[in-house]
Simulated assay, not measured.
Amino acid sequence: MYLFSETTMKYVVMSALVAFLAAPVTAQEIVFGAGYTKYGNISASDAPVIELEYHHKPFHDTRHWDVSWGGVVSGTADEDYFLGVGLVGTYDFDSPWFAEVSVMPGLYSEGSILTDLGDALEFRSLLGVGYAFRNGSAVSLAIVHKSNASLGDVNPGVNTILLRYHKRF
């Protein structure tokens, strides 16, 4: 049994995508990621994934750490969708290199029973390292984990590796 119909979830994902793309004038950063998933359920087929993130202008800024609000929308080739919002932390190494962490709770809709993560509420955590270019863009490699933190009856989780492109404004 699915929380949302396929049509409803596609509408939600597309609406979020349009909202993210319409926001670059006030955005701190837009991030596009592409990668591959590895499900905790061994019967599930692993699938390609794409993600689009929006990182707002930092509300906390120190010499090395920036903290901001962010949002993410992601989808797999198997029609699994996630829409989340939360905190993004970026550590600047006083060089072109940076590290990023984020935690974003959100809604998850599985494309099949095999990719069911146990609950509609899932928590997405990210750890990445990247290289910033002088023109305001950057690339990063990130590992993402989604889990329901044992709120559901089952909690197989899913891990993703992403290659990401950042555009700062």
Rank of each mutant, 00 (worst) to 15 (best):
residue 126 L to G: 00
residue 3 L to D: 02
residue 61 D to H: 12
residue 65 W to C: 05
residue 24 P to T: 02
residue 41 N to K: 07
residue 111 G to S: 06
residue 20 F to W: 00
residue 132 A to K: 14
residue 166 H to C: 04
residue 108 Y to C: 12
residue 84 G to E: 11
residue 137 S to A: 15
residue 33 G to E: 02
residue 90 T to H: 03
residue 97 W to G: 02
residue 113 I to A: 13
residue 40 G to A: 10
residue 125 S to I: 07
residue 160 T to L: 09
residue 70 G to I: 06
residue 158 V to E: 04
residue 121 L to Y: 04
residue 30 I to Y: 03
residue 44 A to F: 00
residue 168 R to A: 13
residue 48 P to C: 11
residue 141 L to C: 04
residue 115 T to N: 11
residue 45 S to E: 14
residue 19 A to C: 08
residue 62 T to M: 10
residue 72 V to C: 14
residue 26 T to K: 14
residue 169 F to H: 10
residue 9 M to S: 09
residue 100 E to Q: 15
residue 20 F to R: 00
residue 68 S to M: 12
residue 88 V to G: 06
residue 141 L to R: 00
residue 57 K to C: 03
residue 150 S to T: 11
residue 123 F to G: 00
residue 66 D to G: 07
residue 132 A to S: 15
residue 1 M to W: 08
residue 91 Y to H: 11
residue 129 V to F: 12
residue 140 S to F: 07
residue 141 L to N: 00
residue 78 D to M: 15
residue 76 T to M: 11
residue 138 A to V: 04
residue 130 G to E: 06
residue 159 N to D: 15
residue 37 T to V: 06
residue 120 A to H: 01
residue 80 D to C: 02
residue 123 F to R: 00
residue 31 V to F: 01
residue 65 W to P: 09
residue 149 A to S: 12
residue 90 T to Q: 14
residue 94 D to G: 00
residue 2 Y to P: 05
residue 57 K to W: 11
residue 109 S to L: 01
residue 20 F to H: 05
residue 41 N to P: 03
residue 165 Y to S: 04
residue 119 D to P: 01
residue 153 D to V: 09
residue 57 K to Y: 12
residue 19 A to H: 04
residue 106 G to D: 04
residue 2 Y to A: 10
residue 58 P to Q: 13
residue 100 E to T: 15
residue 83 L to T: 06
residue 30 I to P: 00
residue 32 F to Q: 05
residue 74 S to M: 14
residue 133 F to P: 09
residue 70 G to Q: 04
residue 13 V to N: 03
residue 37 T to A: 06
residue 99 A to S: 13
residue 24 P to F: 08
residue 70 G to N: 10
residue 77 A to D: 07
residue 79 E to Y: 05
residue 131 Y to T: 06
residue 40 G to N: 09
residue 91 Y to V: 09
residue 165 Y to P: 14
residue 53 E to Y: 11
residue 61 D to P: 00
residue 12 V to C: 09
residue 128 G to S: 08
residue 32 F to G: 07
residue 63 R to E: 14
residue 88 V to Q: 12
residue 60 H to P: 02
residue 157 G to H: 10
residue 121 L to N: 05
residue 62 T to G: 09
residue 120 A to S: 10
residue 13 V to C: 13
residue 36 Y to T: 04
residue 71 G to C: 03
residue 169 F to Y: 15
residue 127 L to A: 11
residue 25 V to T: 02
residue 60 H to T: 03
residue 20 F to N: 05
residue 34 A to W: 12
residue 145 H to A: 09
residue 145 H to T: 12
residue 30 I to E: 08
residue 158 V to R: 05
residue 72 V to G: 00
residue 111 G to N: 07
